[in-house]
Amino acid sequence: MNQNRPIISIRGLEKIFYSKTGQVKALEDINLDIYEGEIFGIIGLSGAGKSTLVRCMNFLERPTKGTVFFDGKDLSKLSKKDLRIARQSIGMIFQHFNLLMQRNSIDNICFPLEIVGMDKNEAQKRAYELLELVGLSDKAKAYPAQLSGGQKQRVAIARALATKPKVLLCDEATSALDPATTHSILGLLKQINKEFGLTIVIITHEMSVIEEICQRIAIIDNSRIVEVGNVIDIFTNPKSEIAKSFASPGGDRPDRVIGNRCCQIIFDGNSSYEPILAKTVLECKAPVNILFADTRNIDGKAFGQMIIQLPEDENLSDRVVAYLRAQGLIVKEVESSV
């Protein structure tokens, strides 16, 4: 997997929507590189501009300033016809699937191939292969109305892959699905990413989607990108308020901790299934009190943080801290105030 070459480069992008009542700045000063073969997530609250951003990536929305380079080509400089050809290399799936309701699954998958003018028999053959890939071989003749949400999205994925695109854009592709179906669709996307090295861009407002599948993310807030980086880095050390709220959705981290001596333990993927805290208590023979905890399991590794109250006894509490550090955890003393 080549991780060095950006397949999508966004430079100085701005998008303003003009209407009779005024103008709305949807995106401002966006610079972003998405590399070949990665699964890149864009997360933000609704109205933050993330959907507009993904729609700018294939010029479904034309940016008012700046540009997008796709595979080295400046999309803003392409003619209408060349832009259409470029779009054939960018697949897209949507929240509401957007399948042709009057065509069955197989004909839906053939649709993009008809657009590029592929021979009918060849198109059918490719469509059946794709239907098998998404696990719906038995639904070839079913119309979208006869399929469940998850099945519709699978057909949509097959359709998006028909023209062998280099990038797959997913605009809130799992937001209309239940958690179990979301999980299976994300699994399918992961499989496609691995098998074909397809670059995937995922737009979502759900942190769980990001956790499950993305390698790098950008957090978008108020029309701007506020943080970009590896999921793990942003998770363990969120800098912006919005990133913090995504990292610990249970509410604010207590920044004023009441107690004698408290410390923050950061889990960043080293110790996963070991019952660290219980072992600490047993080894040090000291009780600790959990004041705040927000950890999650990503790929079998623990991420997140915990704030614990240490015992009154200085010696005991020092021992606890030392023990935790010895386990390879990051331990920070937290200001305590009454």
Binding site: L60, R87, I90, F94, P112, I115, T163
Partner: peptide
């Protein structure tokens, strides 16, 4: 006709 479906066709490069 659902605008989304037309949009999907535009994404595929339909004229």
């Amino acid at each position: 006709v659902d605008k989304g479906v037309i949009e999907a066709a535009q994404c595929m490069g339909a004229s």
